[in-house]
């Protein structure tokens, strides 16, 4: 199964230093690649940080231990999010 990597050209930062802020929709981080920008909530930034060579299965397994949610729902949320990052050129698969 292919591994997910962040595009090294993308700059990013957390918007808040304490990661327990979150209302779910609060902007927790910004990704920036010159032309395009993206704001992420806490779930998004956590996922983004895991795009370091792990497979989607590994990401799902890790996040399953954190969230009380049905695995299929979680997997499809993760896949949707990764698809949108991929379309914008923020991640690549290897």
């Amino acid at each position: 199964m292919s591994k997910v990597f962040r595009n090294p050209d993308v700059l990013w930062r957390r918007e808040s230093d304490d990661s327990d802020v979150s209302q779910e929709e609060a902007v927790a981080a910004i990704l920036f690649s010159g032309g395009s920008m993206l704001s992420l909530n806490e779930f998004g930034i956590e996922l983004w940080e895991m795009c370091d060579g792990q497979t989607v299965d590994e990401i799902v397994t890790t996040l399953m231990s954190e969230f009380e949610v049905d695995e299929d729902v979680l997997r499809s949320d993760i896949q949707d999010f990764l698809n949108s990052l991929f379309q914008k050129g923020f991640i690549r698969y290897e």
Binding site: R13, E15, S16, V27, I30, F32, M37, S39
Partner: peptide
């Protein structure tokens, strides 16, 4: 999103 308040400018 119109009231997005960032911690610093992006650029």
């Amino acid at each position: 999103m119109s009231n997005l308040q960032l911690k610093a400018p992006l650029t």
